[in-house]
């Protein structure tokens, strides 16, 4: 049984008001909200898929693509912005050839922005798979990504 089916089985009696918590649980289990998950949820709650998609896209917290092997979160909080996180993000988007919120075709990187990581002293800050990198300017960002790529090639 798929993880989504298991979750729905567990929440048999939940009605449409449980939509957001179910979406969260699915994302927790699968890392993202797949279209198959939306359709299964739609059948389960008897709510059209368009409505579920609409509600899910309203919130920043839901992803519609699987996470990459390296999940890169870029802080776009005020302090980081002042210290140049916008151009760092632009550089990452250019190198990876994806927009924030997306995952590269090879599944290696996913890129995401967050409002503030609470590490303003390290601005501009990014985190990759939970590990923090401080003072990440555009140039430093480029190097971090290239190092990961090089390490992956050796494997």
């Amino acid at each position: 049984m798929s993880k989504v089916k298991e979750i729905l089985e567990k929440n048999k009696n939940k009605k449409r008001e449980a939509l957001i918590s179910l979406l969260q649980e699915i994302q927790e289990a699968e890392g993202y909200i797949s279209s198959q998950a939306v359709i299964e949820l739609s059948r389960h709650l008897n709510v059209p898929a368009s409505k579920i998609y609409g509600a899910a896209t309203f919130y920043n917290q839901f992803r519609f693509e699987p996470l990459g092997k390296y999940h890169v979160m870029v802080c776009r909080g005020t302090a980081c912005h002042v210290k140049g996180s916008a151009s760092a993000l632009k550089t990452a988007e250019d190198i990876l050839n994806i927009k924030a919120g997306k995952t590269t075709k090879d599944g290696l990187f996913s890129l995401e922005t967050v409002a503030c990581m609470g590490a303003c002293g390290l601005a501009p800050v990014i985190s990759i798979n939970g590990e923090f990198y401080a003072q990440v300017t555009a140039e430093k960002f480029r190097k971090i990504i290239e190092d990961i790529k090089a390490a992956e090639k050796k494997i």
Binding site: V47, P48, S50, K51, I52, Y53, G54, F64
Partner: peptide
């Protein structure tokens, strides 16, 4: 589409300036 026809093939998605009417996905 939703209330009269109960087809519900379109709905609002995204938010703010990016709000739009779309089909699922």
């Amino acid at each position: 589409c939703e209330e009269v026809q109960k087809v519900g093939c379109i709905d609002f998605s995204m938010r703010g300036f990016k709000s739009k009417i779309s089909c699922a996905f």
